[in-house]
């Protein structure tokens, strides 16, 4: 056995024993690149995912709801920051990852390409989108890569809180005036199928699944998680007094699960290709914020360079003249 094979064997053994892989440990190149891709796209999703909800901050209908929504959007920015930091432990830089997002070389979750058209959409996102994200992410708390798993523990705690708030928002609407109830139902009708698509393509078409499961980056298949989510949502929808827009949805005694209708995978593919309702808008806003903020980042860098405290020394009293 040569050195490379010994490393590989030690890695496989550690993963098999459910030990955590840490940044300085040897890892296969493909493991590293798979994680960079997945974690970066997760980070991008948090950052792009701020937009559909931020769309309602200035219009939230009560001060209490406005405060909850602001706190949530702030948390999402924080999650993006944790995840970029965790990705940087694999040797990528945040600038490089943002550049890949802005140039379309890395993706973000397809769900954020749908528009928030009414206030109830904020509740539907909390309940369904965050609910689907949690179903996907809780198993990641046991992911084989330590920094990712630890980031997910913190993120999942906050996400469950948001999910309950979203549910509670919808409940208030559902039990409110007829117009509010209709608004809630309409939002659930529009967000249900896109939320089911968040679990990714069916197992037989999922390109990275097998290897990710072997490496314990993934613990369950897309279809398993999707089924788990449907089973959780059905009684919650009943408690909300809202219906789910699927005539084929029913309990299957034999399987012990809910059967549900077919997903329109052609829509999913179109959204992934950039043809969803908001792809252009979301990426456009992100690029614009970055471009318009360039002078601010340059100023901060210039200021820091000029005022850098020498190692072990104190900041000089006399500053140099500003250089053009």
């Amino acid at each position: 056995m040569d050195a490379a094979e010994r490393y590989e064997a030690a890695f496989d053994e550690a993963v098999a024993a459910d030990e955590r892989i840490e940044p300085r440990d040897w890892m296969p190149d493909a493991y590293r690149s798979t994680l960079i891709r997945q974690m970066a796209q997760h980070a991008h999703s948090e950052i792009i995912g701020m937009q559909p909800e931020a769309n309602w901050i200035t219009r939230a209908p009560s001060l209490r709801r406005k405060a909850i929504l602001m706190a949530k959007v702030q948390d999402e920015a924080g999650h993006g920051l944790y995840l970029y930091s965790a990705t940087e432990t694999l040797g990528a830089s945040r600038d490089e990852l943002l550049d890949k997002l802005h140039s379309g070389r890395q993706r973000y979750s397809s769900i954020f390409n749908y528009p928030t058209l009414t206030w109830a959409d904020v509740g539907a996102i909390g309940w369904l989108v965050d609910g689907a994200a949690i179903t996907n992410q809780v198993p990641l708390c046991r992911c084989s890569y330590g920094p990712y798993a630890r980031a997910m523990v913190r993120i999942c705690k906050e996400e469950s809180f948001h999910q309950r708030q979203g549910y509670e928002l919808l409940l208030a609407l559902s039990r409110g005036t007829p117009a509010q109830h209709a608004m809630a139902q309409d939002a659930v009708d529009r967000w249900w199928w896109p939320s089911l698509m968040m679990f990714g393509p069916p197992d037989e078409e999922s390109a990275h699944s097998a290897r990710s499961m072997l490496w314990k980056i993934k613990r369950h298949s897309n279809d398993e998680l999707r089924q788990r989510f449907v089973d959780i949502c059905v009684p919650q929808a009943e408690a909300l007094g809202l219906t789910l827009p699927d005539p084929e949805l029913r309990w299957n005694e034999q399987r012990g699960h809910h059967d549900f209708g077919p997903i329109d995978w052609s829509e999913f593919q179109r959204v992934l290709k950039g043809e969803g309702p908001c792809n252009e808008q979301r990426l456009g806003q992100r690029r614009r914020a970055h471009e318009e903020g360039a002078w601010v980042r340059e100023a901060a860098a210039a200021h820091a360079a000029r005022h850098r405290t020498p190692r072990g020394g104190s900041r000089p009293e006399q500053r140099e003249e500003r250089t053009a």
Binding site: I47, I57, T58, V73, L81, Q285, R288, A289, G293, A300
Partner: peptide, 13 residues
């Protein structure tokens, strides 16, 4: 609140 999603750097979000 209007700045959300438009800040020049993530830390400022």
């Amino acid at each position: 609140g209007e700045w959300a999603g438009h800040a020049p750097v993530l830390e400022e979000e």
